[in-house]
């Protein structure tokens, strides 16, 4: 019994550590997908709950791919709900704009030099807008492959599609971003 409790405590501690290391990236991914802070927070919280409830007993090295898969599913579900809402209330939502850039109204916690911060803000704003213009699957492939450093296979598992689809989505995302950012990025 004591042994069992020690294992649970250790597992809980490991999970806490894992989630603490991954929650911010997951939040940014969700925010890029939804452009809404609160929706992004909901997606991250639901994903963490699902991971803890269903996969806490798995080996720690499996948590990463599983967590990303859950996050991507939550994002996909969010899009489905949004689509249904738009179909039902489409007429009333025509004037609604998505929330502004993440950096609007936020202070930089690292307190970088204003010029550098401004450059960084502008660059991320441009990237953010470019990413938001991408189709959902292309954005997922780009963020998982490029940002998370996942292999094609891992990305395919996280997205629930074939390796070939990941390659196609990723290549198209790169080409689109290159076209959109080409004018502003060196």
């Amino acid at each position: 019994m004591l042994f069992r409790l020690e294992v649970l405590f250790f597992m809980s501690d490991s999970l806490n550590h894992f989630l603490a290391n991954n929650e911010r990236q997951a939040f940014r991914m969700a925010q890029l997908a939804t452009a809404h802070r609160d929706d992004a927070l909901d997606i991250v919280q639901n994903s963490m709950i699902k991971l803890v409830e269903k996969y806490a007993d798995r080996d720690a090295d499996q948590w990463g791919p599983l967590f990303h898969r859950i996050v991507q599913r939550q994002i996909t579900d969010w899009y489905r709900r949004k689509k249904v809402k738009q179909q039902i209330f489409g007429i009333f939502h025509n004037n609604q704009e998505p929330e502004g850039s993440y950096f609007e109204g936020h202070q930089d916690p690292v307190e970088r030099v204003p010029d550098k911060l401004l450059q960084s803000e502008q660059a991320i704003n441009v990237l953010e807008q470019a990413l938001q213009q991408l189709p959902m699957r292309q954005r997922q492939a780009f963020l998982l492959r490029c940002w998370q450093g996942m292999s094609t296979k891992q990305t395919a598992q996280a997205m629930g599609c074939s390796d070939g689809s990941v390659k196609t989505h990723y290549h198209r995302a790169l080409s689109s971003l290159r076209t959109v950012l080409g004018e502003t990025w060196p």
């Binding site: 940014r28 936020h106 930089d108 916690p109 690292v110 991320i124």
Partner: peptide, 8 residues
């Protein structure tokens, strides 16, 4: 940039 955005 994405890493920076997480740090911020």
């Amino acid at each position: 940039l994405l890493d920076d955005s997480v740090a911020s």
